[in-house]
Amino acid sequence: MTPAGHRRILSHACAWGLISLGLMVWSLFDPRPLPVIGAMSIGQVFGTISLASFLYVVVSDLRPGLKKALDEAGVSKRPLP
């Protein structure tokens, strides 16, 4: 994926993260059934999506370097036992 693609994913991740933070903060200021349940369900899902998106970008960035390092070490060319 291109750097522009990563930027787009991270922008979306930030937006999801801000929504989840908003839901959690709302439940702290207004601890009634709907805000509390919303924070514990929708808020958690959005927060997890944003973190997973960030981790995806980090792993995607690391993959070429890791592959190159493995190639240089000859790990990927070694025959399987």
Binding site: A13, S20, S27, L28, V36, G47, F54
Partner: peptide, 26 residues
């Protein structure tokens, strides 16, 4: 971003959930 999307929201979620559970008892 690791702090903004990972560490800090995780602490918020943990503390918020504990507070949420406590709030539901009142």
């Amino acid at each position: 971003l690791a702090f903004g999307l990972g560490v800090l929201p995780l602490v918020t979620a943990f503390a918020g959930n504990v507070q949420g559970f406590e709030a539901t008892k009142k």
